[in-house]
Design a protein around this nucleic acid. Structure first.
Length: 506
RNA sequence: GCCCCCAUCGUCUAGAGGCCUAGGACGCCACCCUUUCAAGGUGGAGAUCAGGGGUUCGAAUCCCCUUGGGGGCACCA
């Protein structure tokens, strides 16, 4: 690859909200790129927005990145764990002195100047420009103040911002994904504020200082920053720093093709986790949103992605977040999980489901890992998401099953037939006995019963199914009966018969 | 308004001038398997490659224009 220059990339989330899908995808691509070429992946926390940053959001971001398997080589101290890496600090709040220092230097080199324009004045400028159909820009009122003029404004008590001179000309760069891009400085909105009147740095400035200090070699980020890139390049140049390579990723879109937003889509990674999506599938899905291997394979583990990823194969067009596809991938990955893994991951979802039933007054037995292990063959193919486990098998853990009498009678049958069938089935099952109570032992006699009586096996089985589960869609019946156990199967059959008898035949 | 980016089935995409009467996957439909639900298998519908001009013997692929979509233009990040 490059050889002399080591690859250093970063993800710089700001803890003003939970980890966003878009940030996760950007993090993943940075991670994959770094790991692919043996580079360094850095986490930097942009926590300068004190009003909106919270520790909870920070924790969410860190936890979800970890959940996705995206581990950083360098990053800040966290919960007692020391910082990693020698380019720190990795929290922007702790870098403010450095930002101020660079701003001072810009001032001394006349690359920046103090601006005393008030927000009200700037607002009026913008309004006037809008009325004149001009693009909004800073008019340069304070660009060349004399010392006397400055002193006068200081005397009025005006607190200045610091503005960076963008100059005239065209800024060009070669984006790894977009190719050659040229933007005129006139499109930048005039000299930009890099330090607020309260002394804190602004985003565009802080990022560039930090990226330069951390020797970031490649900036891989969302396309929404493409238009801002010239500002950053100018800032890098002004610092005398190497300008990194840029790679602008296509946006992840809402179904209406606008930039994915909380308003129109579910954007928090943690929400997907709590709904039972698994990280293997999520990484796979995220990777495929904007990148493809060029082969017809599409199931990739994180390690396989590291192996195949390249920025050159990232697309240019935005991609709609397609939940159906994510769900399909999730099912694929759930089917691939080793038994112990699946048990460990699915158990909490089952417990959560039963806890809800319990809080609604249903008496339940809480399952243990071994309970789930026995159910694995019957649920594995039926879980698009982990949270689907409850509806699938919760009836096994409730003490008193409530059955809807309407469901009890198969479509082609009447109540009398159903009652007769359940009575006969009970007898057949009782005859099989507790010792031989296994799927293979049950199927033959019950099929025989259907044949003897001229019933379709499906109808008989459906009547039994509803009687013992309360549902019309369940895992295979005989496995279900075995999971339920001899005693409870008979009890539920009896309860169902009683229920039919209590309801007027119709 | 100005600047920038983008444009192949509903969706994610393959495609880097002839292999394309455009391939795969999700979703959808049908059939098979089948006790229900899944999973799996087979098949099908679905894109005149946004439109129009070029370049070329030949264009989804290169160029231009148009249209459409998106993003950016803050003392937000």
């Amino acid at each position: 690859m490059v050889g002399a220059v080591s690859v250093r990339v970063r993800i710089a989330p700001s803890p003003t909200g939970p980890l966003h899908i878009g940030t996760a995808r950007t993090a993943l691509y940075n991670y994959l790129f770094a790991k692919r070429v043996g580079g360094t992946f850095i986490l930097r926390l942009e926590d300068t927005d004190e009003a909106r940053s919270t520790l909870d959001f920070e924790r969410d971001i860190l936890e979800e990145l970890h959940w996705l398997g995206i581990e950083w080589d360098e990053g800040p101290e966290i919960a007692g764990q020391p910082a990693k890496g020698s380019y720190g600090p990795y929290r922007q709040m702790q870098r403010i002195e450095r930002h101020r220092q660079v701003a001072e230097q810009f001032l001394s080199e006349d690359k920046a100047y103090y601006c005393y324009c008030t927000p009200e004045l700037l607002d009026a400028d913008r309004k006037a420009q809008e009325a004149a159909h001009e693009p909004p820009h800073y008019v340069g009122r304070c660009a060349h103040l004399t010392p006397a003029e400055r002193a006068e404004r200081e005397a009025q008590g005006l607190k200045p911002t610091i503005r960076f001179r963008v100059g005239n000309g065209v800024v060009a760069f070669d984006d790894i994904i977009r190719g050659h891009v040229e933007i005129s400085t006139t499109a930048l909105g005039g000299d930009l504020i890099i330090v607020r009147s309260n002394g804190t740095p602004l985003y565009h400035f802080a990022v560039c200082v930090d990226d330069a200090d951390m020797a970031i070699s490649h900036i891989i980020r969302g396309e929404d920053h493409l238009s801002n890139t010239p500002k950053h390049i100018l800032l890098f140049r002004a610092m005398g720093a190497d300008v990194p390579q840029f790679a602008h990723l296509p946006l992840i879109l809402n179904p209406d093709r606008t930039k994915m937003s909380k308003r129109k889509s579910q954007t928090a990674v943690s929400d997907y986790r709590t709904q039972g999506y698994i990280p293997e599938a999520f990484d796979n899905f995220l990777a495929l949103l904007g990148w493809s291997s060029g082969t017809e394979e599409e199931i990739f583990s994180l390690a396989q992605l590291v192996d195949r990823f390249s920025l050159e194969r990232v697309h240019q067009g935005g991609a709609i977040f397609d939940r159906e596809r994510l769900e399909w991938l999730n099912g694929q990955w759930i089917r691939k999980l080793p038994d112990d893994e699946l048990i460990e991951r699915v158990l909490p979802f089952l417990v959560a489901d039963l806890t809800i039933l319990e809080s609604n007054g249903v008496s339940v037995r809480m399952p243990a890992a071994e309970d789930v292990r026995a159910l694995l063959p019957m649920i594995r193919e039926r879980l698009p998401i982990l949270s689907a486990v409850g509806p699938l098998v919760d009836f096994l853990f409730v003490q008193e099953l409530r059955v809807d009498p309407e469901l009890l009678v198969p479509k082609r049958w009447d109540a009398a037939t159903t009652l007769a069938a359940l009575t006969a089935a009970r007898r057949v099952i009782a005859n099989v006995g507790e010792v031989s109570f296994e799927a293979d032992e049950l199927e033959g006699p019950l099929r025989q019963l259907a044949e003897d009586r001229g019933w379709k096996p499906g109808d008989l089985f459906m009547a039994i199914r509803v009687a013992v589960t309360g549902k019309t869609a369940t895992p295979p019946l005989f496995d279900t009966l075995v999971a339920l156990g001899y005693e409870r199967t008979l009890e539920r059959l009896d309860a169902a018969r009683a229920l039919i008898e209590a309801v007027p035949p119709g």
